[in-house]
C-alpha cells in the first residue's frame, strides 16, 4: 500500500500517490456505475453516462477555479490561477455544483431512483479502492499488527474501512435484492455514517 505523502517525480511535476489513488478510485467507480447502468437501462445508458462525465468535469473545473471565488483579483494574474487550486470549502462547493447538475437532469429527465442506488454502489466502490491503495494511519495501537512508523504501531485504518465498506456493500446488495428502488442508496448512506461512528475511536 502507498503512503499518501509520497509520489512519483516526473521531471518538474510531482504526482502524489494521493492524487493517483483518487484517479484510480474514480475510474473504478465510474466503470462500476457504467456497468450497472448498461445492465438496467440499456436504452438511455449513453445519456446518463454523458451527464455523469460532464458532472465530473464540472467538479474538476469548479475545484480548480475555487480560489477565484475567494480572491477575484486573481483573474488579472492568470499564471497564478494555473498554480492555485482548491482551498477552504473547495471540495464542498465543487461537490455541490456537480451534484446539483446531476440532480437537475435526474429530475428533468425523470430518471429512475435505481440510478441513485447505482450511484451509491459506485461511491462505495470508490471508498473501497481508495482505501485499498492508500495507507491511512489511525491512532496508536496496542496490537502488534498495523502500520509501523518510528517503532510505533498504528491502527491500519484504511484496512478497517476496506473490510467494513466491502462487508456492508455486499450485505446490502444481497439482502436488498427485492427491495424498492432507492432503499439500497438510503441503507448505504446510513452504513457510511455507521462505519464512521464505529471507526471513530481509531482515528486521531
Amino acid at each position: 500500500m502507498l503512503n499518501e505523502l509520497e509520489g512519483i517525480q516526473l521531471g518538474p511535476i510531482f504526482l502524489s500517490f494521493q492524487i493517483l489513488s483518487i484517479a484510480l478510485s474514480v475510474v473504478v467507480a465510474y466503470f462500476t456505475f457504467a456497468y450497472c447502468v448498461k445492465r438496467d437501462f440499456p436504452q438511455i445508458k449513453s445519456e446518463i453516462l454523458d451527464k455523469f462525465q460532464t458532472s465530473l468535469v464540472i467538479f474538476l473545473i469548479t475545484y480548480k477555479i475555487t480560489p477565484l471565488f475567494f480572491e477575484p483579483s486573481l483573474i488579472f494574474s492568470p499564471s497564478k490561477l494555473l498554480i492555485y487550486s482548491g482551498g477552504p470549502f473547495a471540495f464542498q462547493i465543487s461537490a455541490l455544483v456537480s451534484l446539483s447538475y446531476i440532480l437537475y437532469h435526474h429530475i428533468s429527465n425523470k430518471w429512475s431512483l435505481k440510478i441513485v442506488d447505482h450511484f451509491a454502489v459506485a461511491s462505495f466502490a470508490y471508498f473501497i479502492v481508495s482505501n485499498l491503495v492508500l495507507k491511512t494511519y489511525g491512532s496508536a495501537s496496542f496490537y502488534e499488527f498495523g502500520w509501523i512508523h518510528n517503532d510505533i504501531v498504528f491502527h491500519p485504518l484504511n484496512l478497517y474501512y476496506v473490510i467494513l465498506f466491502s462487508l456492508f456493500l455486499c450485505s446490502s446488495i444481497i439482502l436488498l435484492k427485492q427491495q424498492k428502488n432507492g432503499v439500497l442508496a438510503i441503507l448505504l448512506l446510513l452504513s457510511f455514517f455507521f462505519i464512521e461512528a464505529i471507526l471513530a475511536p481509531f482515528t486521531v
Partner: peptide, 19 residues
C-alpha cells in the same frame, strides 16, 4: 476494539507523525 482503544487513549501521549 474501539472500547479497548478508549482505555489506551487515556494513558498514552499522541504519537509523532507529520500528518
Amino acid at each position: 476494539m474501539g472500547q479497548k482503544q478508549h482505555i489506551l487513549v487515556g494513558e498514552g501521549d499522541s504519537p509523532t507523525l507529520p500528518l
